[in-house]
């Protein structure tokens, strides 16, 4: 398929989403509780002009970015250690295997009790939601390195440290990036849930406040922006993988 055609189909797919939304809200369920796209757009422009939208969105994004980077920086070395040393795996698997089944949303209350409703609790939750999935993917990546890659390196004269840095690590990069991409999606889920429950600002808080005053248009603005930001973040991530780590991607 040509590039132009695939982009065209993509745009058409998105356009159809808005067309169906428009049709549904105008004719099928005409209600003030379900605003059509153009009303949401107008509201969005209004909120963008007075700065509210940017303020709330950037608050959420800053928390995601901090927690995501922090969680990845913690998760990658732990995952590498778990994948490389059976002893570390035995020691740490109880943590990863137990805690990963307790979703970050279930930890919100605890986080607020521990860290208050400020930034710390949100960043803790994003780190929490990021770290396990990055650990698990990284460790799986280390274990998936073909034994012959290591053997070849040994008989070419590489020592253990060289094997780690020049074979195991680069061979694991695609798995690490996949883990981070999944973690990014999780972060969006978690931040909204956290802000709904306890925050002074952010898109989640914006949705919650709008509900109190029945500002349905405003809720929809937040939802659309959320979808758009998530989509963009994921695309940027994929583009980053392609641009900077593309050569690591063909897993062989």
């Amino acid at each position: 398929m040509s590039r132009l055609r695939s982009v065209g189909l993509y745009v058409a797919g998105f356009a159809s989403l808005f067309v169906i939304w428009h049709v549904a809200s105008t004719w099928i369920i005409p209600s003030v509780l379900f605003p059509p796209p153009w009303k949401v757009l107008l509201k969005g422009i209004e909120l963008a002009e007075d700065g509210t939208l940017w303020e709330q969105a950037s608050a959420s994004l800053a928390r995601i970015a901090t927690g995501f980077v922090g969680g990845s920086l913690i998760g990658i070395p732990i995952g590498l250690a778990i994948g490389s040393f059976p002893i570390v795996r035995r020691l740490l698997e109880p943590y990863t295997e137990f805690l990963r089944f307790i979703p970050a949303t279930a930890m919100i209350t605890v986080a607020v009790i521990w860290f208050g409703i400020g930034e710390s609790s949100k960043i803790f939750l994003i780190i929490y939601t990021t770290v396990f999935i990055v650990i698990i993917n990284t460790a799986a990546g280390v274990n998936a390195v073909a034994p012959n890659k290591i053997r070849a390196a040994r008989s070419l004269g590489a020592g253990p440290f060289q094997i780690f840095f020049f074979v195991a690590l680069p061979a694991t990069v695609p798995y690490i990036l996949t883990g981070m991409r999944l973690a990014m999606a999780n972060s969006f889920v978690t931040i909204i849930a956290a802000e709904l429950v306890a925050a002074n600002n952010g898109l989640g808080r914006m949705i919650w406040d709008s509900r109190m005053y029945m500002l349905v248009d405003q809720i929809f603005v937040a939802l659309v922006v959320l979808g758009f930001l998530g989509f963009t973040a994921d695309r940027l991530f994929r583009w980053g993988i392609y641009a900077f780590a593309g050569r690591f991607s063909p897993v062989t």
Binding site: A146, K149, A153, S155, G157, A158, A171, T252
Partner: peptide
């Protein structure tokens, strides 16, 4: 294993996919 015995493997899973042909050949 040691560098006095070079090994050519049965399959191609011992090659380093993130390195160029040159990078693979100069690895040792």
């Amino acid at each position: 294993p040691a560098a006095d015995r070079g090994v050519v493997f049965q399959g191609d899973d011992s090659l380093y996919g993130w390195l160029s042909a040159l990078g693979n050949v100069e690895f040792g």
